[in-house]
Structures are given as C-alpha cells and as structure tokens.
C-alpha cells in the first residue's frame, strides 16, 4: 500500500515493546487508556476504502437474485461508518465484497486508492490477513484453539513456521497484550465454547487487530449480544477508532447502534443511500 498512509497511521500505535524490530515483529497496540488521552482523532477526508458501482447476483436454481445493483460506498480514513439496512438487504454481501472475501459481478473495490478486487488471490489473501480484517455476528472463532491461539492465528497464517518460531515470544507478547486490551486477560487459555458471547466477540476483535490492520469490517458485531454487552463491544470499537485511528465499517440493522457512528449510510434495493 502507499507509504504516505503508512506514515500517517503508524503514530497511532504505541511502540511499547522494547525488542520490537521492524515489520515482521508486530507493534502492539497500547492498552486502553494508557497515554492515549488527548490523542483523539477526527476522520480525515481522504477515501480509505471504496466500493464503486458494485453488482452482485445470487443464483438459486434458475432464478437470479440480484442483491447489489450498483452499490457505492466511500469509507474515509479514520471514520466509523455504519451501514444499515433491512435484514436480507445485502449488507453482509457488500461487506464480503469490500473485505475481498467474494468477487463482485461488476464494479470495483478500491483500497487506499488502488483497485484490489481483481488482484491475484495470493495478494488478496495478504490484504485480508494484514490490512482489512473482519469480525462477524457469530464471532467465528476456531473452536480447537484457545483465546490466545485464536488471536495469534492471523500471525501464524502470515508467517512461515520458521520465521514464526523465531519471533514466537514477540508474537505471544503482542497477542497477550491485545487480549488484555480487550479485557480477556482471565480467559487467555480458554476455548471459545467456554466463553460468553461478549467474550467471544472481544476475542474476535483482538484477533482482527493482531496484524495491525488499517480497516476493520464488522458484520453486526452486536447482533447476537444483549444490549449491555453490545454497548460494551461498541464502546471498544469506538475507542479503537478514536484512539488508534482504525477505520471501521460496521453493518447493523439496529439504528440505535448505528447512531453512535460518525456517519450512517443505508442499503436499500441494492443501492447505498445516505441515511
């Protein structure tokens, strides 16, 4: 990605690991609140992630279901954007396209000014792994792994066995730091089935952050949680957005959740309209 934005985003991450040595070894996010007060950022005006005229049609047997019919979204750097819409309106589909999990029938996805939807799969895999990460309504943690291992999994996917093992301690320290950051320190070695919904979503957020992404796509992150827990998750996302400058796109059908976003767009009839 372009270097300009890297230099912009880097300062928001506190380099508190003494042994940190460059790209391979990650940079840990500062614990919530620690030294971050007063560094609140406002969204800038340049477009970080953009969906341009996206079309997507599902086929069920012989009937075609057009879900997206020219959807346009421009996500600005550092903003928290909420996409609202009725159930079945295509919000998840749009998010998957923007997260490069799926390919649009037509249209473009731009990330930092470059078109990315037509990149070779290996490069798209890398973007998913390190630049644009996602969290889901159903958390989607790997059931065989502990909280810490789940958080570490994007690192494991990124690095080969040897380079991973070489920086094993650093990785674990980073992950432990993130687990602490999302408030799961006491659940480090638990399996997902031993966690509550809110805890699982926290673990999923920590996992989404471990490779220091620039954009976080959240698909109804509170959809399966009670209001109180949902609000805490939302607060966590809000903090990440404010203090770390993380660009967040959040899909929800709950207007009261969406209300806390910087900006809200509505998906209806396969198009995006300002709400």
């Amino acid at each position: 990605m372009n270097k300009k934005h890297a230099t912009i985003s880097r300062p928001h991450l506190s380099l508190d690991a003494p042994s940190s040595s460059g790209e391979a070894v990650g940079v840990a996010l500062a614990p919530r609140g620690e030294g971050a007060i007063g560094r609140e950022r406002r969204p800038s005006s340049d477009v970080h992630l953009a969906a341009i005229n996206l079309h997507k049609t599902y086929h069920k047997g012989r009937t075609a279901i057009p879900v997206l019919r020219g959807a346009d979204v421009k996500v600005r750097r550092g903003e928290l954007l909420a996409i609202v819409g009725q159930s079945g309106s295509g919000k998840t589909t749009l998010l998957h396209l923007m997260g490069l999990l799926d390919a649009p029938a037509s249209g473009e996805v731009r990330f930092g000014g470059n078109r990315v939807d037509n990149l070779p799969s290996r490069q798209r895999d890398r973007i998913r792994n390190g630049k644009i990460s996602m969290i889901f309504q159903f958390y989607h943690l790997l059931p065989e792994l502990t909280t810490l291992e789940n958080v570490l999994s994007p690192r494991m996917i990124r690095d080969g066995v040897l380079s991973y093992m070489r920086h094993r301690r650093q990785h674990r320290a980073d992950a432990a730091h993130l687990v602490e950051l999302v408030g799961l320190k006491h659940r480090v070695d638990h399996r997902p089935r031993e966690l509550s919904g809110g805890e699982m979503q926290r673990a999923a957020i920590a996992r989404a952050l471990v490779n220091q992404p620039e954009v976080l796509l959240a698909d109804e992150p509170t959809g399966n949680l009670d209001r109180g827990t949902g609000n805490e998750i939302l607060k966590l996302l809000r903090t990440l957005n404010r203090q770390e400058g993380l660009t967040i796109v959040m899909v929800t059908h709950d207007d009261s959740i969406a209300a806390q976003a910087d900006r809200i767009v509505r998906l209806a009839d396969g198009r995006v309209v300002a709400a």
């Binding site: 999990l101 390190g130 996602m134 790997l142 996917i157």
Partner: peptide, 15 residues
C-alpha cells in the same frame, strides 16, 4: 465454517 474463517483470515487454498 472453520475453513471459511481461515480463508477470511487470509489463509490460502494451498494452506
């Protein structure tokens, strides 16, 4: 589903 998760986290088909 786990395979989908791994792919969403950037795992390749080969992986």
């Amino acid at each position: 589903r786990d395979i989908g998760i791994l792919k969403s986290l950037g795992a390749s088909g080969r992986g």
